[in-house]
Simulated assay, not measured.
Amino acid sequence: MDPVRFRPEPPLVADASVWINLVAGGRAVDVLRALAKPTIIPSIALGELERGRDKGRSAYAGITPLIAAGYVTVIDLPEAAENSYLSLVAGRASQTLDDGEAATLALALHLGATALIDERKAIGIAAARFPDLTVATTTDLLLSALVRSVMDADTLAAALFASLTQARMRVPDHLFDEVCDCLGADRARLCLSLPARVRTGLSDIAAAPFVCDLD
């Protein structure tokens, strides 16, 4: 199940997929500046990004300056969060997550923070096992009033388009219409990470691009 419309309340703990999307969007500094506290990445998730360099991925190179500038804080998984973490990585494949996703949920639960994570499976497992944990996605963050307070409509549309086309960002079903409104029909049709039914169902009338309402 996808989360309801998200209003970011830092601290936020973000999985590797979120950083891949933010770096690809080219406006990570603007996004992070809008938040009241540094955003957290578990050291396990950072390790996943670092290993991605061998595959030609650029997210690690993009996040290291953000860490150096104090916008991002790297935290090791504390002992008190290990049981939650182990419960998410051990068991049947249908009920377990990869190490970075599990660390993100376990650390957010331990800190009383919001977990930023994009994978549908991880969101569903979090909702079932940790109903009190607030979980949201990169798209929720980009469309939030906080981020829109520091980005004009054209800049936000460009960041969304880059995240969707370069990182293949996953958009929750309930945000398809809002994302398409922000992009405009012409750009939205080019985003192959959006479902075909969404891209082919766009009306030419929706081609008034880059108009993103706050609510």
Rank of each mutant, 00 (worst) to 15 (best):
M1Q: 12
D2W: 10
D2T: 11
R5P: 04
R5A: 10
V13I: 10
V13G: 01
A14Y: 03
A14R: 00
A14K: 00
W19V: 02
L22M: 14
G25S: 06
I40P: 01
I41H: 02
S43I: 05
I44W: 01
E48V: 09
R51M: 14
R53I: 12
S58Y: 03
A61F: 12
I67W: 09
A69C: 10
A69F: 05
I75Y: 02
D76N: 14
A80H: 08
S84E: 10
Y85F: 15
S87T: 13
A90M: 11
A90I: 15
G91F: 13
R92W: 05
L97W: 07
A106G: 04
A108F: 05
L109T: 09
G112L: 08
E119W: 06
A122W: 03
I123N: 04
A128Y: 11
A128F: 06
R129D: 05
L133P: 02
T137D: 02
L143Y: 07
D154W: 09
A159N: 00
A159L: 00
L160S: 03
L160P: 00
L164A: 07
L164H: 00
A167L: 04
R168H: 14
R168L: 03
V171N: 03
V171K: 02
L175Y: 03
L175T: 06
E178N: 06
V179I: 11
R187F: 04
P195Y: 12
T200L: 14
S203P: 01
A207K: 14
C212R: 02
D215N: 13
D215I: 06
